[in-house]
Nucleic acid binder design. Structure first.
Length: 575
RNA sequence: GCGCCCGUAGCUCAGUCGGAUAGAGCAUCAGAUUCCUAAUCUGGGGGCCACAGGUUCGAAUCCUGUCGGGCGCACCA
C-alpha cells in the first residue's frame, strides 16, 4: 500500500467519525476523494480534495466541511498540521517520523519497493513486436517493441502475472515471397549468376547467409527443382532464420518474449475452423457479399461471396471476411482464432500495434468479444508513427532497395539505453519525430544520462564515504535529517503511486518522467553542498549525520534503479 | 466521404479521476567549479493550452462544431 493510500484510509476514518457525529450524511459517494501530492510542494506533504467533492452532496459548502475535517485530522499523531487552502483543499503536513519510516521502508523492500498488488495476480497477455518474419527489425518496429516491453514489466511490478508474446505471421503470402527470395540466394550461394533481384522479391543482403546455409545443408538438390518441391521447406527454413535474427535484434534492445506463437501452427491445429464453426453456430459468420470500398477507386473490383463476420454488430463499418475467395484464411480469420487461443490462458489481453493498423481494431475487438462472450478484457494499444529524420530531413525508407534503418544500426550508434529512454519519454498515442542526427549529436544531453548520472553520483558518493571515512549508510540517526532531505524522501515516496497509476493507464512513459523528477530533486540537493559545505553527504567530523545522509542517498539510488529496471535501462554506477 | 489518433513556449514533449499561479528539456540571456563527479545547479525572457460554443463552484482536461496535421478505409499484413 502506498503512503498516500495509507493516509486515504486515515481520511476515510475521519469521515466516518464525522458521520458518527451526525455532521455528515452516511451514504456519500467517496470514490472521487483522493489523497495526493500537492501540486506545489510549498503547500505541504499531501493534499485532499475531500471537502470540495463531498460538500455539495452533503448540502454544505467546502470550507465548512473542510473545517470539520481538519479538526478530525489534527487529532492524528502522524499529521503535524492541516490547513484549508484555495477553493477547499486540505493540505497536510506530516510528522517527520512518517518520512523517516518511509525511507526505512525503501531500504527494507529494496528491489521490491514500489511493487503493488493492484494487479491481484490477474494474468495479462501482452503481445508486442510481432514483426513479420521476413527481415531484420527496423526502426518502424522499435517504438512498439520498447513500449510493449516496458508495459509488460510495469504490469508485472504492479501485481499481474504477465505473458510476453510474439505472434509469428508465418502463413501469409509474404512468407512465400521470403521463401522465393531465399531460394534465389540459395542459387547464388551455389554459384549461379542471379543478376538483379526481380521486382516483388526481397532484395536485402540479410538473405545471403540464409542462402549460404541452405546451400551447405541441401547442396544442389533444389537448384533446378519445381517450386512445389522446395517452397514449403524453404518457407520453414527461412522463417526460422529470420526469427533467429529478430530475436537477436530484440536482445540488443534487451527484449525477450516468453512465448512465440506461430500462425501456421494455428492453422495446422484447426483453430481457425473451430472458431468459424462456433461463430456460424451463433450466426456471427454468414456467407455474404463485400461492399465496394469507398474513398479509393479499384479497377478490377467485382463482388464476391465470402464468409463474413458480423463486426457491424459491434460498431464496425462493415462485416469482414474471414476467408479469401481461394478458400485460404484472411489475416483476420487467423487473428480471431489466435486471440481466442490467447484468451484461454489469460484474463486480459493487450496488443501493441502500430497506428497503421488502427482500422482493424474494431473488428478484432468484436471478434474477441464474440468468441469469449465478453469474458476476456481486451485492449489494443496503438503506438503512433515515428517519423524518422536525419538532419531535419525525413529518411526515405525503401524496402525495394533494402534501404532502411535497422534496430541493430540504431543500437550500435546511440546505444540501447538512449533508444529505449527516448521512445519512453513520450506518450505512445502521439506521433513523434526521431531525428537520427540530433539523437546522436545530442546524445550527451540526452535525458537518459541525467537520470543515470544521478545514480552514478550516488554510487560514487557511497564509495567515497566508505573508502575515505569508513562511513556506511545507516538508518540509526535518520531523525537528524532535515527538511531538504525529507523533501527528497517525499519525492521518492511517489514512486509506488506512479507505478500504480502508470500500470492502470498502461502508460509506461509516466515512469520515465517521474525518474527525471526524482533525479532533478537529487541533483538540486546535491548542489546545495557546493555553497553550503554542511549540506554535503560526507561530513568528516559528523559520522552520525553523514551516515544518515548516505542512507538517504542509497535509497534514492534504490528507487532510481527500480524505475530504470522497469524501463529496461541500465543504472550506471559510474559515468 | 467515413473511422481512429493528435494540436500546450521558437523546437521536442509532460500535465494524474475536472482542481490551486499551465510545467520540463533543448535553444536563448545572466550567473555558480580552490568544494562529495559541472554529463550538475541557480535565475531571466518566452503561452489566446488551434478556434468557437456548451456542461459547473471550477475546463488544457469532459461534450458539440470548425480549422489544421498524421494514419487507415478490398480477399494485403
Amino acid at each position: 500500500m502506498t503512503i498516500f493510500a495509507r493516509f486515504a484510509v486515515l481520511l476515510n476514518d475521519a469521515l466516518d467519525a464525522l458521520v458518527a457525529a451526525d455532521a455528515l450524511p452516511a451514504d456519500l459517494e467517496r470514490k472521487n476523494v483522493v489523497v495526493e501530492p500537492p501540486k506545489d510542494a510549498a503547500h505541504g506533504d499531501m493534499a485532499t480534495n475531500a471537502a470540495m467533492v463531498l460538500a455539495k452532496p452533503a448540502g454544505t459548502n467546502p470550507r465548512a466541511l473542510a473545517e470539520l475535517l481538519v479538526a478530525e485530522l489534527q487529532k492524528l499523531d502522524s499529521i503535524s498540521s492541516a490547513d484549508i487552502a484555495g477553493p477547499g483543499f486540505i493540505n497536510l503536513r506530516l510528522d517527520p517520523s512518517v518520512w523517516g519510516a518511509e525511507l526505512t521502508a525503501i531500504a527494507e523492500f529494496g528491489d521490491e519497493y514500489g511493487q503493488s498488488d493492484i494487479g491481484t495476480g490477474k494474468a495479462v497477455n501482452v503481445e508486442y513486436v510481432s514483426a513479420n518474419p521476413t527481415g531484420p527489425m527496423h526502426m518502424g518496429h522499435c517504438r512498439g517493441a520498447v513500449v510493449g516491453d516496458a508495459l509488460a514489466s510495469l504490469l508485472e511490478f504492479a501485481g499481474h502475472k504477465v505473458i510476453r508474446e510474439y505472434y509469428i505471421n508465418d502463413a501469409g503470402g509474404q512468407v512465400d515471397t521470403l521463401a522465393r527470395s531465399a531460394h534465389l540466394r540459395y542459387l547464388e550461394a551455389l554459384g549461379e549468376t542471379i543478376g538483379e533481384i526481380p521486382e516483388g522479391l526481397y532484395p536485402g543482403d540479410y538473405l545471403k547467409p540464409v542462402g549460404n546455409r541452405l546451400a551447405k545443408e541441401f547442396g544442389n538438390k533444389y537448384s533446378g527443382a519445381d517450386e512445389g518441391e522446395w517452397l514449403a521447406l524453404f518457407r520453414k527454413e527461412a522463417v526460422s532464420d529470420m526469427m533467429d535474427m529478430i530475436r537477436g535484434d530484440l536482445a540488443l534492445l534487451g527484449i525477450h518474449h516468453d512465448l512465440f506463437s506461430s500462425e501456421a501452427a494455428l492453422h495446422e491445429e484447426g483453430k481457425a475452423e473451430a472458431a468459424e464453426k462456433y461463430l456460424r453456430k451463433n450466426d456471427l459468420v454468414y456467407d455474404g457479399e463485400l461492399e465496394k470500398p469507398k474513398g479509393k477507386e479499384i479497377e478490377d473490383w467485382e463482388p464476391v461471396t465470402l464468409p463474413l463476420f458480423r463486426s457491424t454488430q459491434y460498431g464496425d463499418d462493415q462485416d469482414r471476411p474471414i476467408k479469401k475467395s481461394d478458400g485460404s484464411w484472411t489475416y483476420f480469420g487467423a487473428d480471431l482464432a489466435y486471440h481466442y487461443q490467447k484468451s484461454q490462458n489469460a484474463d486480459r489481453l493487450i496488443d501493441i500495434w502500430g497506428a497503421d493498423h488502427a482500422g482493424t481494431v474494431k473488428r478484432i475487438k468484436a471478434a474477441v468479444n464474440a468468441l469469449t462472450g465478453g469474458e476476456t478484457e481486451f485492449d489494443v494499444k496503438l503506438v503512433q508513427m515515428v517519423r524518422l529524420l536525419r538532419g531535419g530531413e525525413p529518411i526515405k525508407m525503401s524496402k525495394r532497395s533494402g534501404n532502411f534503418v535497422t534496430i541493430a544500426d540504431m543500437v550500435e550508434e546511440v546505444g540501447k539505453d538512449v533508444v529505449r529512454f527516448t521512445m519512453l519519454t513520450r506518450k505512445s498515442d502521439a506521433q513523434m519525430d526521431f531525428d537520427f542526427t540530433k539523437v546522436i549529436e545530442a546524445s550527451k544531453d540526452n535525458p537518459v544520462f541525467y537520470v543515470q548520472y544521478a545514480h552514478a553520483r550516488i554510487c560514487s558518493t557511497l564509495r567515497k564515504g566508505m573508502d575515505e571515512e569508513g562511513f556506511a549508510p545507516s538508518a540509526e540517526h535518520i531523525d537528524l535529517l532535515g527538511a531538504e532531505e525529507l523533501a527528497l524522501v517525499r519525492e521518492a515516496a511517489n514512486f509506488p503511486r506512479i507505478v500504480e497509476s502508470a500500470a492502470k493507464a498502461a502508460e509506461p512513459h509516466r515512469v520515465a518522467f517521474y525518474l527525471n523528477d526524482l533525479a532533478s530533486a537529487f541533483h538540486t540537493y546535491w548542489n546545495l553542498g557546493n555553497d553550503q559545505p554542511d549540506k554535503r553527504f560526507i561530513l568528516g567530523q559528523n559520522k552520525q549525520l553523514s551516515e544518515a545522509r548516505l542512507f538517504l542517498a542509497a535509497n534514492i539510488g534504490q528507487v532510481i534503479r527500480n524505475g530504470l529496471r522497469l524501463l529496461g535501462v541500465e543504472a550506471a554506477e559510474s559515468m
